[in-house]
C-alpha cells in the first residue's frame, strides 16, 4: 500500500458522512464514495503532498456529484416511499431515526449547490476558503450560498416535518 493510499483510506468515514448527507441515501452515498476513491487512487500524482487531502477528495466528489446530477436530473436525491420506509426501519432508537429523517427531508428541499456548501462548512467543518477551493467557486459565493442555504434549512426545519412530507409525495 502506498502512503497516499493510506491517507486516502483514512478519510473514508468522513467522505461517507458527507456523501450520505448530500444524497440522503446510504447506498447511493457509498457508490459516490467508491467512484471518488477509485478516481483519487488512479490520480494520486495530482495531489500535492502537504496540501489538504480532504479538500482534494471533496473536489473529486463534487465533480462526480455534479456529473451524476446532470445525468439523472436530480434523481440522486429523490426521497421516494421505498427510501423513506427503509429509513423508518433503520436501526437505532426511534427518536434518532426520526430526527435523521426530518433532516434528510429538510436537506432535500435545498438546491444541490446550497446543500454542498452548507454540509462542507457545517458538518465537515471546512474553512470557507477550503470549501471555495473544493467547489471551485469564490469565497464570496460560498458565503452567499451559505446564508441562503442556511436560512432555507432553518425555515423548513421550523415548519416541522409535515410540510416536507407533503412535498416529497
Amino acid at each position: 500500500m502506498t502512503p497516499v493510499r493510506g491517507l486516502i483510506v483514512e478519510q473514508i468515514p468522513r467522505l461517507r458522512r458527507y456523501a450520505r448527507a448530500l444524497t440522503g441515501d446510504q447506498s447511493r452515498a457509498d457508490d459516490l464514495v467508491q467512484d471518488c476513491l477509485e478516481r483519487a487512487l488512479g490520480r494520486t500524482r495530482l495531489w500535492k503532498p502537504g496540501t489538504n487531502i480532504r479538500a482534494w477528495l471533496f473536489t473529486i466528489m463534487h465533480n462526480l456529484f455534479v456529473n451524476d446530477l446532470r445525468r439523472n436530473k436530480g434523481g440522486l436525491r429523490s426521497l421516494d416511499d421505498a427510501t423513506l420506509a427503509q429509513q423508518e426501519s433503520a436501526d437505532g432508537d426511534g427518536l434518532a431515526a426520526m430526527e435523521l429523517r426530518d433532516i434528510d427531508r429538510a436537506l432535500a428541499q435545498l438546491t444541490p449547490e446550497h446543500r454542498e456548501v452548507l454540509l462542507l462548512v457545517a458538518v465537515e467543518q471546512l474553512t470557507y476558503q477550503e470549501a471555495a477551493d473544493a467547489l471551485g467557486i469564490p469565497v464570496g459565493t460560498v458565503m452567499s450560498r451559505l446564508a441562503r442555504g442556511r436560512a432555507r434549512l432553518a425555515e423548513v426545519l421550523e415548519d416541522g416535518p409535515g410540510r416536507g412530507l407533503r412535498r416529497v409525495k
Partner: peptide
C-alpha cells in the same frame, strides 16, 4: 442538528468495497 444527525456515519464500519477500492485511470 445537522452535525448530530450524521455523526453516526463516522462510527459505522466501512464497507469492504470501499476499503478495497482500486485505482481507476
Amino acid at each position: 442538528r445537522l452535525r448530530a444527525a450524521y455523526a453516526h456515519v463516522l462510527r459505522e464500519p466501512v464497507p469492504d468495497r470501499l476499503t478495497q477500492a482500486r485505482p481507476r485511470g
